[in-house]
Amino acid sequence: MRVPLLDPQKLIAEVRARAEALGFDAFGIARADARPDLPEKLAHALAEGWHADMEWMAETEERRGDPRRLWAEARSVILLGVNYGPETDPMALLAEKNIGIISAYARNRDYHDIIKGRLKELAGLMARRLGSDVKVFVDTAPLMEKPLAEAAGLGWQGKHSVLVSRQFGSWLFLGAILTDAELPPDTPGAESCGSCTRCLDICPTDAFPAPFRLDARKCLAYYSVEHKGPIPREFRVAMGNRVYGCDDCLAVCPWNKFASVSREAKLRSRAEFERPALAALALLDDAGFRDLFAGSPVKRIGHARFLRNVLICIGNSDNAAHVPAVVARLDDASPLVRGAAIWALRRLDPQGADAVRQEWLAQESDADVREEWNGAV
């Protein structure tokens, strides 16, 4: 039987203090039913196809739209944020065509690993004090953390669809604790983007059909991280030197001027991820890839998809010195890598590509790779 919550404010103050001690920078509470608008909004996004080929979003639609569908006993949601504000401006690296840009959130340990243990400790404290059941979530279950975080007062979903905080700009990792206890909710965050459209205007692929709406079918972060096939030709040049993710819409947010660098050392950039040379990344074998990105979110996409991204970026480098590394990947075991290598070679050395085209076509059986030899660059 649940222990009555006699002094909720005292309990919440204790939990807030413990959350801060554990390294959380933002804390808020929302009712589990605080966003009755979510099922309709989610259904519209799925109907429009904005989820691209992330079929898991459609498969979990019913549970995703309402925390109580995920857990019927849920009454309150505690939302927590960890600031991962980068030390340097991610946009400053776009002009350096011979290095690869790794998204700010992925430049150190996987945030899931860092945050989940802390959430469990905090949830344990709540369970002991409340005598209630709790469940912990860190971006791995069908829970819509961003609109719930808005309901809990951590900030608001900006026009780029990411949560924006007055204290931390667009740089917050989110985690959630569901409980069957009735807790007093915080005041929801008020949308404060005003007339600003910087995040929409900066997008290199026009991925926002409207403010507060993101179409993954045009998003470079989606293609470089989630997409399992070749990068569509129409987005390859726009990809520039982004080897993993895209921070443009986050990095230009004016609210970032109030954000400090993350106080969490484990979330600060590893030196080797700040300005990695494309030439070195292209030489990585599978073991080298796994070793370099051990503990990093980058490791999850696998060696072949990472090389696909690197080779597209090399094709955008305008540097013929990369040609030998590209040619070395023309016979890679992965069709995904071979196809990207062909595109890069045709960009950097079109005459050389034409000279070997027939030879490679004669031994290529994969339809997508053959199309790379024959299709437009």
Rank of each mutant, 00 (worst) to 15 (best):
G302N: 01
P184E: 09
R357Y: 03
N108K: 07
K97S: 10
R31Y: 09
G315E: 02
E20G: 04
S260V: 01
A32L: 09
L80E: 03
Q358Y: 09
P276M: 01
H112Q: 12
D368K: 10
A271S: 15
V252Q: 03
L94N: 06
F212M: 04
H303A: 12
G100A: 01
G175S: 02
G245F: 01
P297A: 11
G155K: 06
A362K: 10
I314D: 13
D133F: 07
A251T: 04
I99P: 00
A321T: 12
W50Y: 12
P276L: 00
S132M: 10
L330G: 11
S334N: 00
A17W: 07
Q9C: 07
R68L: 05
A333N: 04
E61I: 07
V82C: 02
A340C: 02
V356F: 09
L46G: 04
E14K: 13
K41A: 09
R166E: 12
N83K: 04
D66L: 13
A207G: 06
P147L: 05
G315K: 02
K257T: 09
M91R: 11
L125P: 00
L79A: 14
A45Y: 06
P350G: 12
V326A: 06
A280P: 11
L220V: 01
D368R: 13
R329L: 02
D66W: 11
R166D: 11
L361G: 04
V323K: 11
L94R: 08
W171C: 02
L163V: 14
A325D: 15
C253Y: 08
E62Q: 06
A376C: 10
P184Y: 08
Y105M: 07
W156A: 01
S170Y: 11
L174C: 00
L250R: 05
Q363P: 12
L70Q: 11
A141D: 05
A221L: 00
W71F: 00
I301E: 00
P90C: 06
L267E: 02
F168Q: 01
D291L: 12
P254G: 07
L130N: 04
A353L: 05
S165E: 00
S317C: 04
G229F: 01
L125G: 02
